[in-house]
């Protein structure tokens, strides 16, 4: 018994990554997630348009951080701003600029931003009817409508990252990696060849999950399918690339899976999928902005719920593309070290 325990301890001490995860991870998780765990949004970005925009803007509660006051803008402009995710709420005022008449305003609320919408709705209702709320894109504020587009990304992340993280490690463990290294195949080709089947499988998975989400939960698909497909494809490259990168820094399948989980955990809680990004403490919110799922969620919610086009979603598209290029470059460079030590050779003829 004692011998067994001693042996386990000795093995464990040599596996520094596991020890690090066991000791460090709970601390990191508690601190990071503790600061992230907040459903209450205490500030929302707002636009006020219409003839009485200035008066209405002046009377808004503190919750509203007014970004735009435009007396010349129309209701259509307000709707465009919501669709393009420029603001969380747009107040459309009526009457004339001189005031005098009992001013009525309609608050157009972006229902795809669930928790912000709930805060706005509560604040609007507290005005005692001065402002009439109208929730767009998710009129009943159904949680599933907001979650399904994000969950599609989460599922793809799980499948893509974990499966590909084992891929190269398996070659290393079986001793076939060295055989590949001697063959005239470029490192980039090996990586692309490795991920191609998983890319296809994950793409099929995505179609099934999206269709099922729409069928079972009545989630609408208001935007362009091609925009969604393009975003999903770039996102898939990122998550598969992360898997390959993990594969290049792991010696065993166990290490690879541990590392993959370490990368996946924050995506669930910090990508804005569960806790709204704007409600997180600034100290942890920036982590959310480093996660690919954050940007895929913006694309999927934008396209599916708001019908947003690529012109308003260009930022998440650019960020995901940069991430894809960066992660593949890093993975290829790391992998090249495994495949081509002859670069360091002094002379060879």
């Amino acid at each position: 018994m004692k011998a067994m325990i001693v042996k386990e301890f000795r093995e464990l001490i040599r596996d520094r990554r596991t020890v690090g995860l066991l000791v460090g991870l709970p601390l990191i998780l508690l601190v990071v997630f503790g600061y992230a765990a907040n459903f209450y949004v205490d500030h929302v970005s707002a636009a006020v348009v219409g003839p009485q925009a200035e008066q209405v803007a002046a009377q808004l509660p503190d919750l509203f951080e007014v970004q735009t006051v435009d007396t010349a803008a129309t209701e259509q402009d307000a709707r465009d701003m919501l669709r393009d995710d420029v603001v969380d709420v747009a107040l459309v005022t009526g009457g004339d600029a001189a005031g005098g008449t009992s001013s009525t305003a309609t608050a157009l609320i972006d229902g795809s931003n669930l928790f912000a919408a709930q805060s706005i709705l509560a604040a609007v209702n507290a005005t005692g009817g001065a402002i009439t709320p109208e929730v767009l894109y998710n009129p009943d504020l159904t949680t599933a409508w907001v979650m399904i587009p994000a969950i599609i990304g989460l599922i793809l992340t799980f499948i893509g990252t974990i499966v590909t993280s084992i891929g190269l490690v398996r070659e290393r463990e079986a001793g076939t990696l060295e055989q590949l290294a001697v063959m005239p195949i470029k490192p980039g080709t090996v990586i692309l060849g490795k991920i191609a089947p998983y890319f296809l499988l994950a793409a099929i998975d995505m179609v099934i999950v999206t269709a099922l989400g729409m069928l079972l939960f009545d989630v609408p698909f208001n935007g362009n399918v091609l925009t969604f497909a393009l975003g999903a494809a770039i996102f898939l490259f990122v998550v598969l690339g992360i898997g390959v990168f993990i594969s290049t820094i792991s010696q065993t399948a166990g290490q690879a899976i541990q590392t993959a989980f370490f990368v996946l955990m924050p995506q669930i809680l910090l990508s804005g999928m569960i806790f709204p990004l704007e409600a997180m403490a600034a100290g942890v919110r920036w982590i959310g902005y480093l996660l690919p799922l954050t940007y895929f969620t913006k694309i999927s919610q934008g396209v599916m719920l708001r019908g947003a086009g690529i012109d308003s979603l260009w930022l998440p598209f650019v960020v995901l593309t940069v991430m894809a290029v960066a992660i593949f470059t890093a993975a290829t460079l790391r992998f090249r070290r495994d495949l081509a030590p002859e670069r360091r050779e002094r002379t060879a003829s």
Partner: peptide
Amino acid sequence: RQVAPDSGTVDAPGKADLGY
């Protein structure tokens, strides 16, 4: 060429003519 020598030279064909 899976191990780079610290010194000395290796004469071996390119990958296309090498079996391992």
